[in-house]
Computed example of a mutant assay.
Amino acid sequence: MSEWKAKRFWTAAEVTESEGRFGIALDGRGVKTPAKRGLEVPTRALAQAIAAEWDAQDDVIDPRGMPFTRTANAAIDKVATQKAEVADLLAAYGDSDLLCYRAQAPEELVARQAEQWDPFLDWADKALGARLQPRQGVMHAPQDPEALSVLGRRVHALDAFELAAFHDLVSLSGSLILGFAAAQEVQSPEAIWDISRLDEIWQSEQWGRDDEAEAMAARKREAFMHAKDVLTLLNSR
Rank of each mutant, 00 (worst) to 15 (best):
S18E: 14
S18G: 04
F9H: 14
S196Q: 01
I201R: 13
E40K: 05
A141T: 13
R64I: 03
S204D: 13
P34A: 13
M1R: 10
I177R: 01
A182K: 08
Q184C: 08
E53P: 10
M225Q: 06
L109Q: 03
G20N: 14
K220G: 11
A218G: 05
P106S: 11
L89Q: 13
Y101L: 10
A74Y: 15
E14F: 02
Q104C: 09
I201G: 07
R131T: 10
P34T: 11
P106Y: 10
E53A: 10
W193C: 03
A72W: 09
L234S: 12
D62Y: 08
E200D: 11
D97H: 04
L234F: 12
D159C: 05
G94F: 09
M66R: 13
E3D: 14
H140R: 14
A12D: 14
V60Q: 07
I50N: 02
V31E: 04
R70I: 01
D77M: 08
P119T: 07
G30K: 11
N73C: 15
D62V: 11
F161D: 07
L26M: 07
Q206L: 15
T11Y: 06
G30D: 09
Q203P: 00
L172K: 15
E162A: 13
L231Y: 09
R131C: 01
V138K: 15
Q143M: 00
I50H: 00
A52W: 00
W207Y: 15
I50M: 03
A147C: 02
E19F: 15
A165Q: 09
E205Q: 15
A80K: 07
A182Y: 07
S236D: 15
G152Y: 06
A80I: 04
G129E: 12
W207R: 11
V86H: 14
A227M: 08
A45K: 08
V79Q: 04
G30A: 14
I76T: 06
E3S: 12
A147N: 04
A47K: 00
A105V: 10
A105P: 07
H226G: 06
R135G: 12
Q143A: 01
E222P: 00
R8P: 04
A92R: 15
A13Q: 05
G30C: 06
L233S: 05
S96N: 05
F224A: 05
H167L: 05
F22T: 04
K228T: 10
R197H: 06
L121R: 02
A92V: 06
W202Q: 10
I61Q: 09
A164N: 06
L148I: 11
W193L: 03
W117N: 05
E185G: 02
R70V: 02
A227W: 07
D118Q: 12
E14P: 01
D59C: 03
Q136H: 09
G38T: 02
D194N: 04
G174K: 06
R44M: 06
I201S: 10
H156V: 09
V31P: 02
Q113S: 09
K78E: 13
A56C: 04
V155Q: 03
L39H: 02
T43Y: 00
A84S: 13
M225I: 12
L89C: 11
